[in-house]
Measured scan of single mutants.
Amino acid sequence: MKMAVISEHLGLSWAELARELQFSVEDINRIRVENPNSLLEQSVALLNLWVIREGQNANMENLYTALQSIDRGEIVNMLE
């Protein structure tokens, strides 16, 4: 549920979040190519990849820290 809210509000910031979460330029470009027409779909794809990559370590605290690092703390505030 929280992931959906984050995806809805990320907009163009999804790529900046991807870099903050240590995704490569290739990963970011692949997300763009696979989801060409929708920032929402790109955001969802990023968060899904992050959960798959991090497994047990994919917790909201880590995601909140990354969001705050890219000056998107207002998204965190909405969810708390």
Rank of each mutant, 00 (worst) to 15 (best):
K2N: 11
S38V: 06
E34L: 08
E26Q: 10
Q22V: 04
L49N: 07
S69K: 12
D27I: 12
L17G: 00
N59Y: 11
R30N: 10
K2V: 11
N35T: 07
Q56S: 11
L79P: 07
Q22E: 12
R72V: 00
V5R: 04
I28W: 02
R30Y: 07
L40C: 06
A4K: 15
Q68I: 11
Q56N: 09
A66F: 00
P36I: 05
L17D: 00
L12H: 15
L47C: 12
E34P: 00
A66D: 01
N59V: 11
V76F: 04
A66L: 00
L12Y: 11
L40I: 14
V5D: 03
Q68K: 15
L21Q: 01
N48R: 13
I70L: 02
N62D: 15
D71L: 02
D71Y: 06
M3W: 07
H9W: 08
S24N: 06
L21F: 03
W50T: 01
I28S: 02
E16W: 03
R19C: 09
L47N: 00
N59A: 12
F23M: 03
E26V: 08
G11A: 05
L46R: 00
Y64H: 06
L39P: 14
V44T: 15
N57W: 09
A58K: 14
S69M: 10
V51K: 15
Q56W: 08
R32C: 10
M60I: 12
P36T: 04
L46G: 00
V33K: 08
L17V: 03
R72C: 10
S24R: 08
N57H: 08
E20W: 06
E20I: 10
E34N: 10
Q68V: 11
L12Q: 08
E61R: 06
M1I: 12
G55L: 01
A4T: 13
N62Q: 10
K2W: 15
S13T: 05
G73W: 07
R19A: 12
A45S: 13
A58D: 09
S13N: 05
I75P: 04
G73M: 05
E61W: 08
G55S: 07
R53N: 06
M78T: 14
L79V: 15
R53M: 04
V76K: 07
S24G: 08
L63I: 14
N77L: 12
V44S: 15
L17A: 03
V51C: 15
S24E: 12
L79A: 13
E61P: 03
E26M: 09
V76E: 06
S7A: 15
G11K: 06
V44M: 15
N35P: 01
L49V: 06
K2P: 03
G11F: 04
E54P: 00
L79S: 13
G11E: 15
Q68E: 11
W14M: 05
L12D: 10
A45C: 07
D71E: 14
Q42D: 03
L10R: 01
M78E: 08
D27V: 11
S69T: 13
Q22T: 12
R72G: 04
E16T: 08
M78V: 14
N29A: 12
E80V: 10
N37K: 14
S38K: 06
W50R: 01
A45V: 04
Q56H: 08
I75D: 04
N57G: 13
I28N: 01
L67G: 01
T65H: 12
M60R: 03
E20K: 06
T65E: 13
A18P: 00
Y64E: 06
I31A: 01
V76M: 07
E54A: 04
E26L: 10
P36N: 11
N37W: 06
L12G: 15
S43A: 12
L47V: 07
E8K: 14
S7H: 01
A15M: 12
A18H: 01
E8H: 05
R53D: 03
R72I: 02
N37M: 08
S13C: 04
V44C: 14
L79K: 05
V25E: 14
M3V: 13
M60S: 07
K2A: 09
L40V: 13
G55K: 03
E34S: 10
E8W: 02
E26P: 06
E26W: 09
G11S: 03
L63V: 10
T65C: 13
L12A: 15
A18V: 00
G73Q: 10
A15S: 14
V33C: 15
L10E: 00
R72Y: 00
K2H: 07
I6V: 15
V33L: 13
L63Y: 02
D71Q: 07
E20R: 10
A66R: 02
E74A: 06
A66E: 01
P36L: 02
H9Q: 14
A58G: 14
D27L: 05
H9T: 07
M60W: 14
A66T: 02
N57K: 10
N59C: 08
D27C: 12
V76T: 08
Q68T: 08
L46Q: 00
S13A: 13
N35E: 14
V51G: 13
M3C: 06
H9I: 03
S38Q: 03
E16I: 06
S7Y: 08
A45Q: 10
E80N: 12
M3R: 12
L67Y: 00
W14S: 01
M3K: 10
L12T: 14
S7F: 10
V51P: 03
S7Q: 06
M78C: 14
V76L: 12
Q68D: 11
N59G: 10
N48I: 00
A4H: 03
Y64W: 04
L49R: 11
R32Q: 10
I31F: 02
V76D: 00
M78S: 10
E20M: 11
V5E: 06
V33M: 13
L47R: 02
S38Y: 02
L46Y: 03
L12N: 15
E26R: 11
I31T: 02
E26C: 11
Q22S: 13
V44F: 15
R19G: 08
M60K: 04
E16F: 08
S38I: 01
R19K: 12
G55P: 03
A58P: 15
N57D: 11
D27N: 04
M3N: 02
V76Q: 04
Q42I: 00
V25P: 13
H9C: 13
Q56R: 13
W14L: 04
L21E: 00
L47E: 01
I75L: 09
N57P: 12
Q68Y: 08
N48P: 00
R32A: 11
P36R: 09
E74N: 05
L49P: 02
S13V: 04
R32V: 12
S38P: 01
L67P: 01
V5M: 11
S7I: 05
N37H: 06
I70P: 02
V33G: 12
Q56A: 11
T65S: 13
M60N: 02
N57R: 09
A15T: 13
L40F: 13
N59E: 15
L40Q: 13
V5Q: 05
Y64R: 05
E41A: 11
D71C: 10
S69D: 12
N59S: 14
A18D: 00
R30V: 09
I28T: 05
R30F: 04
G11R: 05
N59R: 14
E80Y: 12
L46N: 01
D71R: 13
N77Q: 15
T65W: 07
L63G: 01
R19W: 07
R53G: 04
T65A: 13
I70S: 03
R72T: 02
W14H: 01
L46C: 10
L67I: 09
R30T: 08
M78A: 13
V25Q: 13
E26T: 14
L63N: 02
I70A: 02
N62F: 14
I75C: 02
H9M: 07
F23Q: 01
V33R: 14
E8I: 04
S43L: 00
A18S: 00
S43R: 01
A15D: 08
N48M: 04
V76Y: 07
W14A: 02
L12W: 05
L17K: 02
V25N: 15
V5N: 03
L39R: 04
M78P: 03
L39I: 05
E41W: 04
V33W: 11
E20S: 10
L17E: 08
G73P: 08
